[in-house]
Nucleic acid binder design. Structure first.
Lengths: 346, 346
DNA sequence: ACGTTGTGCGCAAACGGTTGCGCACAATGC
DNA sequence: GCATTGTGCGCAACCGTTTGCGCACAACGT
C-alpha cells in the first residue's frame, strides 16, 4: 500500500535531480559513471520499475492493440486471437479484447471502448451486420490504424488479411471431381456475406472448369441456424436425383447437415459424401466428419494481421507513413483430406 | 493527423482558464451558466473527447482488468471470458487478454505484462504447472487485486470463484446409482491437480454413500492426452468384470475414451455407458455423447469473478478496504442428463 | 592567459487533465 | 454602512517521466 518508488524518490535520496536519475537509468552518455552506478544501485534496491502509464501517456502510446471479433467461442476466432497474441508478445504489445456477437451495435460499442483506451491500433473481424463503417472511420481522427482479417470490408482503402475462399472452393470442387463425383450440391451461407459470394463464385467456376453443368437446384442457402440448414438439406434430399456430394458452408453447418441426413436414413459419407470449410479439430470426434475440409489458417491470419499493424506503427514512428499504402495479405487456403472416399456412383 | 482538441484549446478560444473549462464540462456548480453553455457548445463543435489516458494517469487507474487463462481454444474458457466481458462492460471496464498455455513461464510473463500495463485488477485461472505464487504476490505491491476462478490456488488468503466438483461427482455417482448402475469406473485426471483430487474424493464418497464398495481397480488416471486416456481405457476393458459405467474427467477425455471403446467393439452407451464433466456443446454432435454431464457454469464463474473484483475496487476507492476479507464464491454444479439410459445389467 | 571543447548535471516545460485554494465582486443581512 | 455570505473564475500544483537547453567547471591547445 505504501507508494511505489518513483524516479523522484531516487532523486531525493541521492540528492540529484530527477532528470539525472532518468538519464542515468537510460544510460545517457552525459551522466558520470559514478552517478549512474549509484542511481542504478538504489533503483534496484528500491525495486524501482518505471511507470509505463506515465511514459505511454507522454509518448502518446499505449503499447496496447485492440482486437474485436464476433465470437470467441468459435474455434476459428480463438485460434486467430492466439496468433495475434503470439505476434503481439514478440513486439511487446498486449491485447485489449472485445466481442461483437455479430451485432453492429455491440461492435460500435467495442470500437468506442478501444478508442477510449487509446489503443495504438485495432485488429478486427467484422460482424455479419456491419454494413457501414463510420465507427471505424472515426478512428482515423485518432490516428488509430485498423487492420481487418477474415471478415474484411469491401472498400479498398483498408489493410486486410484474408483467405481466398474463391480458390478454396474451386479446389474443393476439383477434389470431388478427381474422386469421381459429378453431382455436387452446395449449402451456402447468407447471400449478403462476402464469404458466401466468394464460395458461390468458386463453386460455379469450379464446376464449369470441369465441363460440368451448373445446376442452381443443387445450391441452397442457410442462415447458419440448425433449422436453416435442415431446410436446405430437406430440399436437397427431395431432388429427383440425389446429390453425390454436398459442400457445406462451414463445419457447423456440416454437423447439422450430416445429423439431419443421418436421421433421414442417408448413409453419410457413403451414400452422400460431405466436405466442408474450417477444419475444426473437433470434427474428428463427430459421428460424421467431413471427408475433406478447407483450412483457412486462422492462426496465421491473426499473426499476419498483427505483423501488418506493427509495420504500420513502425512506419508511423519513423514519419515514413504513406497514407496511401494499403497492405493486403491474401493467404492460400489448403485442402485437408481426411480419408480417400470410397469411390461411389461412377 | 491534426491534433485532437484538448481542454486547453477550448480555453484559449474562449479566453478562459483550463480549470474553468474542466469544471464547465463536468458541470461544476461554481461555474456560471453562460460560461458552461459556451464551453459545452464549443466542445461539441470541436468534437472534443477527454483523453482518458490522461485522466486515468492522474487518477492512477486504467479501467482495464487483466484476464489470464490457460487456453482460449477450450470452450470452457472462452465461455468464462465472455462472462467476464459482459460484467466488465456493465462496469465500463475493458479486458486485457493473455494466455498461459498451461505453462508457468508464460503465466509469469503474462502477469508481468499486465503489471506493466497497470491493470486495475486481475482475473486468472491458473496454469497446470503453477505451484508457486511469487509472480502473483508481486501484484500486491502494486495494489492490484487478484481474483481466481476455476483453477484456484490452495491458499486461503485469496479471492476465488469455483464450482464444487466434489459435490458434482457425488451427484454423478448418485445419478448412475439411481439408474441402476453399480459397477462404476472412473478415469480421473493427473493426481496433483486440485480438480482431480476433488473428483476422486467425490467419487469415493459417492460410492460409499450408496453402500457400495470402493474398488480402486476401477479408478484410472490419464495425463489428459489421447494416449494416456487410451491406456486407462485399456486397463479398464481388461478387468475380469467389465464396468457398467465410466465417469471421465472431462468431455475431451470422454471423446477419446468412447472412441477407443468403439474401436474395441464396445457398444458405447449400451454395453458401457459414459458420463462426464464440462458439458461441451459440441458433444451433441459427437458419435458418442455422454449420457450425463456436470455443467460447471464457466460463464457464471466469469461473471462472478468480475463482480467480486468490482466490489473490491469499489471498496478500495471508498477507503473501506479491509485487507483481511477474502471473497469466495462456490457455485453449485448442475447435472445435465441427455437421455435416460436404457436400463442395463440389472 | 585566453578561447575552445568536453563533461556532468540541473531547470523547466511538456503530455492533458483535476482540484484545493484564493481573489474579486456582488448580493444579502442587520 | 459594514461584516457576511455567495458567486464566478483563475492560479498553480500535481500525477511520473522525458528532453532541450543552459550553466559551471575542467581540460585542452596555442
Amino acid at each position: 500500500m505504501d507508494k511505489l518508488p518513483t524516479i523522484k524518490e531516487i532523486a531525493i535520496r541521492l540528492n540529484v535531480s530527477v532528470s539525472t536519475v532518468s538519464r542515468a537509468l537510460s544510460n545517457h552518455p552525459r551522466i558520470g559513471l559514478g552517478t549512474k552506478e549509484r542511481v542504478q544501485q538504489l533503483a534496484k534496491e528500491l525495486g524501482y520499475e518505471p511507470n509505463t502509464q506515465a511514459i505511454f501517456f507522454k509518448q502518446k502510446k499505449t503499447h496496447v492493440i485492440g482486437v474485436i471479433i464476433p465470437y470467441i467461442r468459435e474455434d476459428f476466432f480463438s485460434q486467430a486471437i492466439s496468433g495475434i497474441e503470439s505476434a503481439a508478445i514478440e513486439h511487446e504489445y498486449t491485447i485489449l479484447f472485445g466481442q461483437s456477437y455479430d451485432e453492429l451495435e455491440r461492435e460500435i460499442k467495442a470500437v468506442a471502448a478501444m478508442k477510449k483506451q487509446r489503443v495504438d491500433g485495432l485488429i478486427i473481424s467484422l460482424s455479419k451486420e456491419t454494413n457501414k463503417y463510420n465507427h471505424l472511420e472515426a478512428l482515423k481522427k485518432y490516428d488509430i490504424p485498423v487492420v481487418y482479417f477474415d471478415r474484411v470490408p469491401t472498400m479498398t482503402d483498408s489493410h486486410k488479411v484474408f483467405c481466398n475462399l474463391y480458390k478454396g472452393t474451386i479446389e474443393l470442387v476439383g477434389w470431388l471431381f478427381n474422386n469421381g463425383y459429378r453431382n455436387i450440391a452446395f449449402i451456402n451461407g447468407p447471400d449478403k456475406l462476402r464469404a458466401s459470394k466468394e464460395r458461390l463464385k468458386g463453386y460455379i467456376d469450379g464446376i464449369s472448369k470441369h465441363q460440368l453443368k451448373v445446376d442452381m437446384q443443387l445450391v441452397e442457402t442457410t442462415d447458419l441456424s440448425k433449422e436453416g440448414t435442415e431446410m436446405a438439406m430437406k430440399k436437397l434430399l427431395n431432388l429427383k436425383k440425389l446429390p453425390q456430394a454436398i459442400i457445406t458452408f462451414n463445419d457447423y453447418v456440416h454437423m447439422d447437415a450430416t445429423q439431419y441426413a443421418a436421421k433421414n436414413n442417408i448413409a453419410v459419407n457413403k451414400h452422400i459424401i460431405f466436405v466442408s470449410f474450417a477444419n475444426l479439430p473437433i470434427t474428428s470426434y463427430t459421428a460424421f466428419p467431413p471427408l475433406a475440409s478447407i483450412e483457412q489458417h486462422p492462426y496465421r491470419q491473426g499473426e499476419k494481421a498483427m505483423d501488418i499493424l506493427m509495420t504500420i506503427l513502425k512506419n508511423k514512428d519513423a514519419q515514413e507513413s504513406d497514407p496511401d499504402i494499403y497492405y493486403t495479405e491474401e493467404l492460400a487456403p489448403s485442402l485437408v483430406a481426411y480419408k480417400q472416399p470410397a469411390m461411389h456412383g461412377l
